[in-house]
Each structure stands twice: as C-alpha cells, then as structure tokens.
Simulated scan of single mutants.
Amino acid sequence: MSKKKLLVYGSIILSMLFWSFSFVWVKIVYLIYNPITTVLLRLIISSILLFIIGKGIKKLQPIKKKDRMQLLLLAFFEPFLYFMGESFGLQLVSSTLGAVIVSTIPLFSPIAAYIFYREKIGIMGLVGILISILGVSVIIFNKNLNLIASPTGIALMFLAVAAAVGYSVVLKNMAAKYNPITLISYQNLLGIALFLPWFFLFDFHDFIYAKPNIKVWIALLELAIFASSLAFILFTYGINHIGITKTNIFINAIPVFTAIFAYFVLDEILTFQKMAGIFIVICGLFLSQAKLNFFRK
C-alpha cells in the first residue's frame, strides 16, 4: 500500500476513533450542561481553533456566491440537525445503542446516492439494510418484542442518521471545490448561528447557574478539538480521495469502539444481547458493500 493510501485510510480511522469517543465524552458533559449548550460550546471552541489554524496556514478559501446556499444546507444537516438528533437522543439511550444506530449511516447513503446521483445500488446493499435493521432490533427489543430503549431516543438518533446522509449528499459536491478546513470552519460558524436562538430560548438560564468541574471542561475540549474539528477534517479528506461509500464503510467500527470505551469509562454494561446486535449490524454493513448490481443506470 502506498504512503498516500496509508495517509488516507489512517485519517479516516482516526476520525472514527474520535467520533466513537464523542459518545462517551458527551455523557460526561451532560452531567452539567444541557444538549444545546453542549453543542454550542463545542462549536464555538472548534470555530475559534479552526479559523486560527486556517488563517495561520493560509488554507481558508473564499466561498463563491453560487455555493453559499449549499454551504448553508451543509451546516443545516451538520452540525444543526444531526446534533439536535444525536444530542437529545443520547439523553435517552445508552452510548453503545446510539453508536449502533449511527453506524447504519453507510446503509442509507447509497440509497440517497441513487436518488440524487443515479448511482448503482447493489442487491447485497438491500440485504445488508435488512440484516442491520435486525441487528438494531436485537439491541432495542426484548424477547417479548417490547422496546427496552426509549422510542423517542431511538427516533432522535435516526433523525441524526438522516441528517448525516443528507450531509454526505451535499458534501460530495462541496468537497470537490473547497479544502476540508474551509468547509468545516464555515460549517461550524453557521452552526453557531443556527443554534444560538435555541440556546437563548431553552438553555440560557441553566447555563448561567451551571458549575462545570475540570472533568466536564476536559470532555468539552475533547469534543470540540477532536470530534467537531479534527474528525470532520479527516473525514472530509477521506471522502475527497476515496468517495462517500468507501469512506462511510469505516463508520462500521464506531459501535465497537464506543462499546469498549463506554464499558471502561462510563461502566456501561456490555451484555451478550448488545454484543450480538453489534455483530449483526456490522455483518449487514459489510454485506451492503458487495458488488452485485440490482439497480442500473
């Protein structure tokens, strides 16, 4: 494998590790701050960091007028809609279950790619979707087919999945025109503008009286630096070099990493049912990448 490919794949794996840890870090910050406050603070810290770096290394590109609406749509999907779903969802479901649901993103991305770009969908992709849905069901239902997780929390996590798929569709065009630092810097800045009204409406009073400890501040900085900055830059770099579908395959690893981190950091119980569900989801995700065309151009 060439050094270039190693750099690309290494970047993507790192982004998955950072996002996996984010499911754990956010649970720590929630001990003090509400979801909207958490997202807003991590975006503010991330934006300051990225604009300093971008200006310093002269990587910030001006956004052309014709691309500004696409950039706004990019920011609407992520960070706004995605974090609305994920942040509130993680208040109601475990870190591991949240990560398992998010790991279904690669299943739905090819469907969106077919709808918007007429890209082929493999028959194994359809099979993979069904198997992964079965895997998620193993985790969220008991033997009597009763939900063992919050329906609202599950719905919110799938809202995050839908937002991530929409983000990938828009990002495909934008990543070909602008470098990752430019896209993530402006994306996060617009995200701040979208979150501010909600912050003042719902969270401002609690924020004023909150007393964060050093553990919470460290987790918040980790979210801002690694999950909201570096992970997005590395992920965008990967999409620009190997495409949406191949890059999204690596999301398969997120629930595994998160389950391990949550077990050691948050003392979440890793039951046989959870492990079985994760295994089934990952099997479905890998099957979805098989090259047997069902729909053709």
Rank of each mutant, 00 (worst) to 15 (best):
S109I: 15
K64Q: 13
L71I: 07
L92Y: 13
L90K: 00
I131H: 02
I111N: 01
K66V: 14
F77Q: 04
L90N: 03
K65I: 11
P79S: 03
F80G: 05
I140K: 01
L60M: 04
G122A: 03
S137P: 09
V138L: 14
V100L: 11
Q91Y: 08
K66D: 14
Y117V: 01
E119M: 12
G125V: 09
K55E: 13
I121P: 05
K59Y: 05
L126I: 15
Y117T: 08
I105F: 10
Q61E: 15
V93I: 15
L50W: 09
L74S: 11
P110Q: 01
L126V: 06
S103M: 04
I123V: 12
G125W: 10
S109G: 09
V127N: 01
Q91M: 13
L97P: 08
S137A: 15
V127S: 08
F77H: 05
P106G: 04
V100W: 07
L72F: 15
V93K: 06
I111W: 01
I123D: 03
V102N: 11
V136T: 05
A112E: 09
I140C: 07
F51C: 06
P62Y: 05
V127T: 13
Y117K: 12
G85D: 01
L72Y: 11
G89H: 04
S109H: 04
P110W: 00
T96A: 14
I121D: 06
T104D: 08
L73R: 09
F80Y: 13
I139W: 08
L130A: 15
I105W: 09
Q61S: 14
I53F: 10
I52P: 05
I57H: 10
G85F: 05
S137M: 12
F80S: 01
I53P: 01
G98R: 02
